[in-house]
């Protein structure tokens, strides 16, 4: 009886997990706040077509061939991307209950603010519209800045680079490479999102109450929507769409992000930002795009390349463990000699 119940409960749990996983994948491909959703893939294609016909006189055919080449989309590297997307979705679903939620952070901030700040009582005549504008803007700026900062750390610290290296081991870039992420890195990204968005939301609701809302399009932050609509997916592609150095000082172009994925040492640790270029300029990591011979993507170091799922999940853990070991050894020997 007990066994039967256990079996039944397990089956129900597995079933829920399966539907949750499927729903997650569906969201990934359809939701307006997901980069790889179908609408943005189409819009990126249109952007590429217009841009290359206007700036470089490419024919539609040539552009499409460049965009949708089988060598890129069905390369070994790209196939690993797809597998990672599908498997990660399940792993993250399992981890979700243990991860710090935005609401928890937002509520904590809200209550903490009550201890030291009295919200101003405005009469709000005609100025209510400003609150959503500022909220959306602040959310966007802090999101963009914190992503730069975390990305910077992922490159700087060997313990973290071990995980981020998986993303950089992609030899061909497709829009789905954006999701080529080790679960450990995904957890860190999630934590960042929870802290930043929870903090901003908790503080804004405390100060402005029900006047706060997200200025969005189809449920996505309006600015993120614009960024995605205007071809963010070309960042992970083989079409070097550059904005020209004047604009690239403010907005990172797809071509600049491709430099970030380049094997050339001169391009290492450059253009770490997502939307705005200002963080890279402040951090000394900004690099303008120069027309050049096609870039080689991937990493070249003493470690193995990622050829299959097992390597993709296991090798970063191993490599990170070695990095931790090195730090401890250094610390111990420093203590002994000191």
């Amino acid at each position: 009886m007990l066994m039967e119940q256990l079996l039944l409960d397990t089956l129900i749990w597995l079933q829920e997990l399966f539907w949750g996983w499927l729903a997650g994948l569906q969201t990934l491909l359809l939701a307006a706040n997901k980069r790889v959703s179908v609408g943005y893939l189409v819009s990126a294609t249109l952007v590429a077509l217009l841009w290359f016909s206007w700036r470089h006189n490419w024919s539609v055919h040539d552009t499409l061939k460049q965009l949708y080449s089988r060598q890129i989309w069905w390369s070994r590297s790209a196939r690993l991307d797809y597998m990672l997307v599908v498997v990660n979705q399940a792993i993250m679903l399992l981890l979700k209950p243990f991860l710090l939620g935005k609401l928890l952070v937002a509520t904590a901030i809200y209550y903490a603010m009550a201890d030291w700040l009295v919200p101003v009582a405005w009469s709000w005549s005609g100025l209510e519209w400003l609150v959503p504008v500022i909220y959306t803007l602040v959310l966007f700026l802090l999101d963009d800045a914190s992503r730069y900062w975390l990305h910077h750390l992922m490159h700087r610290w060997p313990v973290l680079w071990a995980f981020h290296r998986l993303h950089h081991s992609a030899k061909t870039l497709t829009p789905f490479t954006v999701l080529r992420t080790h679960p450990v890195e995904a957890v860190l990204f999630g934590l960042r999102g929870a802290l930043v968005q929870g903090l901003v939301t908790g503080a804004f609701v405390y100060l402005f109450g029900s006047k706060v809302s997200l200025l969005g399009v189809l449920g996505a932050n309006g600015l993120v929507f614009m960024f995605n609509l205007l071809g963010a997916n070309l960042r992970h592609s083989h079409v070097p769409l550059s904005y020209g150095s004047r604009v690239e000082k403010w907005l990172l172009s797809p071509a600049q992000h491709q430099l970030h994925h380049s094997q050339d040492r001169a391009h290492y640790d450059k253009n770490l930002g997502v939307v705005l270029a200002i963080w890279d300029r402040l951090g000394g990591t900004w690099l303008a795009y120069q027309p050049q011979t096609p870039l080689q993507f991937g990493v070249c170091d003493e470690y193995d390349q990622h050829d299959n799922l097992w390597q993709a999940y296991w090798q970063p853990l191993q490599q990170s463990g070695q990095a931790v070991k090195r730090v401890i050894q250094r610390w111990v020997s420093a203590r002994q000699s000191g």
Binding site: G24, K34, R35, Q89, K96, L179, T201, G219, V274
Partner: peptide
């Protein structure tokens, strides 16, 4: 009094599938 937080946070969507740039 924190009820508005839940709606707003929900409107931000989930960041479960981290986009890696």
């Amino acid at each position: 009094v924190t009820a508005e937080l839940a709606d707003l946070v929900a409107s931000l969507g989930s960041s479960l599938a981290a986009e890696n740039d």
